[in-house]
Design a protein around this nucleic acid. Structure first.
Lengths: 110, 110
DNA sequence: AGCGACGGTAAGGAGTAACTTACGGTAAGT
DNA sequence: ACTTACCGTAAGTTACTCCTTACCGTCGCT
C-alpha cells in the first residue's frame, strides 16, 4: 500500500469527486464547464480537482484564463497495482479454498 | 459504477478500516483478536467490520461466542470490474494520445 | 443455574470533510 | 487602460465520520 494509493482511495470515496473524475476522464474539461454540469458551486469543483490532482488522478493545463483538466493515468495505475497485488496475494489462496472465485472474473482484456 | 463499488471505495478510504481488511484478508480473525492488534477499541473494530461487510469485503461465521471474519472476494471483484471498465473505456483512448500509458502496466497474470 | 468470555448496539463527543460566499489575481478583448 | 471572463484561495458553517464508554444479549463450561 503506497501512500499515493491511500490518496486515490480517499479521493474516489466522495461521490461528487467521483462524478467530476469520471467526467474529466471521458473528456477534458474546464473548471467552469464542470461546475455548470454539477449541482455544486465552482469553488467546490476547484477544491475537488485539487484533491484529485494530489492523488495523481488528473492534471491541469492552462488555456488562456481557463484551466483544462484531463485524465492522469498514474493514479488509477497505482490503485490497479494495489488490487493486482492483493488479488495474487490473498485472493489466490482464498480461491483455492473456495474453488471458484478466481475464475468468475477472469476476462482477457487490456 | 454500481452502488456496491461506491461502498467498497468508501470502506477502503479509511486507514484503520484498510488495516483491518488487510489483516482479515491475510488470515481469518476474530473481533477481539483484531482489537488486540490495533490501537482502537473492540467496538470500533466491530463497527469497521460492519462497514466492510456491507461493502461485500468480508463475511462472518460464528464459532461459539466468537465471530470469525474472513475475506469476501465479491467486494474486491466489483472494484476490479469497475477499474477494468474504466481502463478500457477512458485509459485506452488516453493511451492512444499519450502513446505509452497502456503498456506501462501490462502484465500477464491471473 | 450461575459465571465468564465474546461481541453487537446505543449514545455522545471531538475532529474533519464538504460546501457556501467573499475576495484577489491573471489573461484576453476592445 | 478598462472591462470581462475565468479560476484559485480564505474564512466560516454544517454535516458526517470515527472513536469512546456503557450496556445488553449469546454461547459454553462447571
Amino acid at each position: 500500500m503506497t501512500d499515493q494509493t491511500a490518496l486515490v482511495l480517499a479521493a474516489l470515496a466522495d461521490p461528487t469527486r467521483r462524478e467530476i473524475f469520471e467526467r474529466v476522464a471521458s473528456r477534458s474539461r474546464a473548471v467552469g464547464e464542470l461546475a455548470s454540469e454539477l449541482p455544486v458551486s465552482r469553488p467546490a469543483v476547484s477544491q475537488h480537482l485539487r484533491v484529485l490532482a494530489e492523488a495523481g488522478l488528473v492534471t491541469a493545463r492552462a488555456d488562456g484564463t481557463r484551466r483544462v483538466y484531463e485524465l492522469d493515468p498514474q493514479g488509477l495505475a497505482g490503485l490497479r497495482d494495489y488490487l493486482d497485488g492483493f488479488w495474487s496475494r490473498s485472493l489466490a489462496a482464498f480461491a483455492k479454498a473456495a474453488g471458484r472465485a478466481s475464475t468468475i472474473h477472469d476476462k482477457e482484456q487490456r
